[in-house]
């Protein structure tokens, strides 16, 4: 490309950008129609903006996000199961290595934090981790859906909806409780109930973390002066990082608590240890 052509291209590029900026400034004042207080309140509570779920219920947009994420996950899993898993090799290719890495990561997390009864836990935290990660990333795509009031809304992360976060927290608590029941019977249940604040803390941690991203992004977009370039960084900071951090935090907490309640009581361990020691002595005596 010659120098002259380069200069012309740069000028055209700059003119287009300036024209667009002028257009943005001159066309309407959409932000002022709805005060910031209202925008923030609605982003948190979703009191006004509702979306119809299959025409059955009017629900928060987060729930629609949740079902779409499940749909995406279902299609991905089905394709992987039919076309890729049967062709898995001993020495993995790139895609196989990625899938195995994800499964191995959560499996290791489960087995390292909960040495007893971690088969189910691995599957649970894999699902939870994938759901939080994909759900949070999903926010970045800005999928638009019609609202019941006639407008459209960009779908948020499923867990930025308080109902979704509570659902997730309660599910995790129930999984921990079930681990306690299976592992330690009544003692396990008591151990789990001792941490009665767990579902609340888990739910609100998720909700707060994911909502903060949505709120900051909303704020940045509300004021036009900061709605250029900055949202890229804000989006990365509050969406990508939260996707990773929250997926890790929830799965780690769930596996830690699960490990705690499924751990056999010291009395049982002592008994087993004693039993093992006797066995060792017998073996030693038989040997010599």
């Amino acid at each position: 490309m010659s120098k002259k052509k380069k200069t012309v291209s740069l000028i055209v590029f700059a003119v287009i950008l300036i024209a667009l900026l002028a257009g943005i400034v001159l066309t309407g004042h959409a932000g002022e129609e709805e005060p910031i207080k209202e925008v923030m309140r609605d982003a948190v509570l979703h009191e006004k903006v509702k979306v119809s779920l299959f025409g059955l219920f009017d629900v928060n947009p987060g729930l629609i996000s949740a079902y779409i994420v499940t749909g995406i996950f279902f299609i991905f899993s089905l394709i992987t199961r039919i076309f890729f898993i049967p062709r898995f090799k001993i020495v993995p290719g790139k895609f196989q290595a990625l899938i195995e890495k994800a499964v191995g990561l959560f499996d290791d997390l489960a087995s390292s934090n909960s040495p007893h009864r971690n088969g189910f836990l691995g599957a649970y935290i894999f699902t939870a981790g994938a759901y939080i990660f994909v759900g949070t990333i999903f926010e970045l795509f800005g999928v638009q859906v019609p609202t019941t009031s006639g407008g459209t809304i960009s779908l948020p992360a499923p867990l930025a909806d308080i109902n979704g976060a509570i659902g997730m927290g309660v599910m995790s608590y129930l999984v921990i409780l079930s681990g306690g029941i299976v592992g330690n019977k009544v003692k396990g249940v008591l151990n789990t109930l001792k941490d009665f604040s767990l579902p609340i803390s888990m739910s609100f941690r998720l909700f707060g973390a994911l909502l903060s991203g949505a709120l900051v992004t909303e704020l940045v977009y509300y004021y036009m002066a900061v709605s250029f370039v900055i949202p890229v960084f804000v989006g990365v900071m509050f969406t990508l990082l939260h996707a990773l951090i929250q997926a890790y935090v929830l799965t780690m907490l769930t596996s830690l608590f699960y490990g705690e309640v499924t751990e056999p009581s010291p009395k049982k361990i002592k008994k087993n240890k004693h039993h093992n020691t006797n066995h060792e002595v017998e073996r030693y005596e038989n040997q010599y």
């Binding site: 948190v44 509570l45 979703h46 009191e47 779920l53 219920f57 629900v59 928060n60 729930l63 949740a66 079902y67 499940t70 699902t127 939870a128 759901y131 499923p158 909806d161 308080i162 109902n163 979704g164 509570i166 659902g167 997730m168 309660v170 599910m171």
Partner: peptide, 15 residues
């Protein structure tokens, strides 16, 4: 906080 048990259950069903 606009907590809705039905929606919580719908989220749990989805999960």
């Amino acid at each position: 906080l606009n907590i809705n048990i039905q929606q919580v259950l719908l989220h749990m069903f989805n999960f």
